[in-house]
Nucleic acid binder design. Structure first.
Lengths: 208, 208
DNA sequence: AAGGGTATCGCTCATTAGGGGGAGTTTGTT
DNA sequence: AACAAACTCCCCCTAATGAGCGATACCCTT
């Protein structure tokens, strides 16, 4: 059976062109809309396999669209299709549940590949987008802005696992008070007052 | 000028086949090694545009290889080329600075595309890898696997900010012991024994 | 009406953690 | 040689926390 696709795109000519292209290539475009206010219902009723979602639309934007579709019918794959490549919109879409992110400059051939890819459990992204996503993992470069000594980093790593001072001392074969000393210095360097804050800061800023 | 490539792969036949294939397709394979202990120097000396890096190698593994190359010559693009698709190795590689991640089942044609893509500032990933990466942004969906009640989630959110019980009670306009009650229940549901563990678990699993 | 889950609050007790101090050793730098 | 920084260990004291018992009240489902 053909793959069912729904389009959300407020530019009428682009949307109709896309629908035409997709139909010509054997896809079943079961709906195309210029705004996504009713996206949740549309997903429930038409049960599309794939949704192509623009971001900038009158009324509710595509980010809300993804959210609603993912809430009402998670098995539908949503591919963002937009001109925006700024970090903010990108990561909002990803958190909202987007399964792919293509820029509008993507050639139609790649668009068909992307639909295939997302159906096979992939996550099609334009190259510049994929790079941005990968870069979020590499922020460790900023790790040493607090000038933690090697030993302090080691202690912090144990702390982050939720271990108590006593356990850390045992693991590192140190005296209880030595670990406490390190912790005091860590707290000073991180500008925090307790282990909980230190863990929170270390994990959210990916210090270790 | 031709694109300079270095290979790190301990399987001799695979490595030689890859080198052959790449050379046949116009790439300049300036080096191929069965271990990556000297990767930093190799990167500095041969100044490759792209490195294909295996993970499982005798001596130091490819994760260290990426780290060293990225430290000694960041402008070299490193694509992991491995059979591993477990989360742990994947994200270690990404944090180490990998610019792409291809599984060894990738057909050669896609390999060439990937090299092109990474040179153009992209981040080639096998579909299943890309999906894993995107999923890290969406784990909010799995948030409720511990059945935390709304109030408990609220308390946990304050806890994650590093606040003490006293402060949390004040912020939520609750009695000290009420907050402690919620915390006890949270610890039970998360299977942890103290606040530090709870914070660690909540942040690393993005429960809130 | 009864039971389960949630939310609220209370108490005690032992353990843990944090703040304040000091002090010795090694290592590397000036 | 002098100095700083890191690493190690010790003491005292107070505050915070976790475990173990409660309790009451509300809402919802059965």
């Amino acid at each position: 059976m053909p793959i069912k696709i729904v389009l959300f795109e407020d530019n009428d000519r682009l949307r109709e062109s896309l629908a035409y292209l997709l139909k010509m290539n054997g896809y079943d475009v079961v709906g195309d809309y210029n705004q996504c206010t009713d996206a949740a219902n549309i997903a429930r009723v038409y049960e599309p396999d794939v949704v192509l979602m623009d971001i900038d639309m009158p009324g509710d934007n595509g980010i809300k669209g993804v959210q609603w579709i993912k809430e009402s019918r998670p098995q539908t794959s949503v591919i963002m299709y937009t001109v925006f490549e700024d970090d903010e919109k990108l990561f909002e879409c990803l958190c909202a549940g987007a399964n792919g992110y293509l820029l509008k400059k993507t050639p139609p051939a790649r668009l068909f590949d992307a639909i295939q890819e997302v159906l096979e459990g992939g996550a099609p992204m334009s190259p510049v987008i994929a790079r941005k996503v990968l870069n979020t993992f590499q922020v460790k470069a900023t790790s040493n802005k607090y000038n933690l000594s090697p030993r302090e980093i080691e202690v912090l790593q144990w702390l982050i696992k939720g271990y108590s001072i006593k356990i850390i001392a045992a693991e590192m074969k140190l005296a209880f008070d030595t670990v406490r000393s390190h912790l005091k210095n860590i707290y000073q360097k991180l500008h925090v007052n307790c282990g909980k804050e230190a863990i929170a800061k270390a994990l959210s800023e990916r210090i270790v």
